[in-house]
Design a binder for these strands. Structure first.
Lengths: 210, 210
DNA sequence: CAGGATGTCTAGCGTTGCTATGATGTCGCC
DNA sequence: GGCGACATCATAGCAACGCTAGACATCCTG
């Protein structure tokens, strides 16, 4: 292989990444509905068909952005968990970091967890960064807990519910701390968050009633 | 007002409902991406502009479908709750009914809770059926629990997370019972579901660990 | 019965994701 | 060095989308 073709492949790889980055920036700035193939092509200073020589379609571009997001989320959760040695606080910190991620990067979060996708979750073909992110939740539970995968799954689902409903305006953005503290307290089976430590649970039953 | 204009208004109201029903049926049969104004117009046997004399646009049609769904969900949850007198089981039953609703009517659920909307949640202009559905969750907690609104909010969020991630294929459809049982058990702060009563929690710590 | 208002459809605008075709430029071979 | 083969890229266009202006018909009213 000649040096020239090597350079071309390098340039091609750069352009590949350029498309992903441009799509992500455009989505984060104006939302996914503003990401059209025309605007994206203009932004990377190529014509539309070039996009299709790198990706099979708009869906594939969004999938690439999502996978990039999985890597960032996994790294962020891992950093937070390792920085919080005490177990209950680790779960709380990881959950808070998850919600912060969803709040700070709504468009990225949408691509990862809300918009239709054909990325395989909990499957052999699952992208490693996605599995890594999920494992951060699993690692917040004792290794002798045979159901820690279930614990992690439900914890993640609940966090996703809060994040999705907040982002779409279906629950008010205020009170995230209370929701987070309550959730972690219940999931962990024991008070762990700062609010709980401040005694917000005192004097109130948590049992259902008719 | 003449009898003729009365008849016209009646016919107009019927057609209004016909559009909503047709949109819903089309969405439930082929998904919302298949609901185009052209296909919808063809289905109600009118031309496209007629839709716009009833609704300001496609969004408004979807909003009408969603509000219809809120009414059905509220009725379903209420029926289930009243049929389950024992408090802990009531919460469990209501949660299960919510997930069943989401599973049985995925397109309707999407319009209600996933797709972008400008329906006001937790607001003065909130549609009464929506508020009624939420209140069914609230009513599952003791009235002397000053934070029952928070309890209900987090419970609903967690259920929505499970429903949304399941429907988009991000968590496998198998194991919904386990997730539901675990969630209700943790939220209620005491075992309440059948699985918990079967002793699935034995011998496993629920405390996080490093 | 004429006139005006009401209601409906035909036709079309601008935009979308995507692609067939053709021009341009580069590479390897003789 | 010149030339055919190849890869690369842009122009132009397709079908379908949400939505709307204007023409047409129909019906009620004076």
């Amino acid at each position: 292989m000649s040096a020239i073709t090597e350079r071309r492949e390098r340039e091609r790889a750069q352009r590949h990444q350029l498309i992903i980055t441009a799509a992500r920036e455009l989505a984060e700035a104006e939302g996914w509905e503003a990401v059209t193939t025309r605007r994206l092509a203009e932004r990377v200073e190529y014509s539309q068909p070039v996009l299709y020589s790198h990706f099979s379609g708009k869906d594939a571009i969004m999938r690439a952005v999502a996978i990039e997001g999985f890597g960032e989320l996994a790294a962020r959760l891992r950093r937070v968990r390792l920085a919080t040695p005490e177990p209950p606080q680790a779960l709380h910190a990881v959950c808070r970091a998850y919600l912060e991620f969803a709040t700070e990067r709504p468009a990225l979060y949408q691509a990862m967890f809300i918009l239709p996708t054909d990325v395989k979750f909990a499957h052999a073909e699952t992208p490693p960064p996605l599995r890594a992110a999920f494992d951060e939740f699993v690692s917040c539970f004792r290794s002798d807990n045979q159901r820690r995968e279930l614990f992690a799954e439900v914890t993640w689902s609940a966090l996703h519910g809060i994040a999705a409903l907040t982002e779409s305006g279906r629950i008010p953005p205020n009170g995230q701390t209370e929701r987070l503290d309550f959730l972690v307290t219940q999931i962990a089976g024991t008070p762990s968050g700062p609010a709980a430590l401040r005694g917000q649970l005192k004097g109130q039953g948590s049992e259902p009633s008719h």
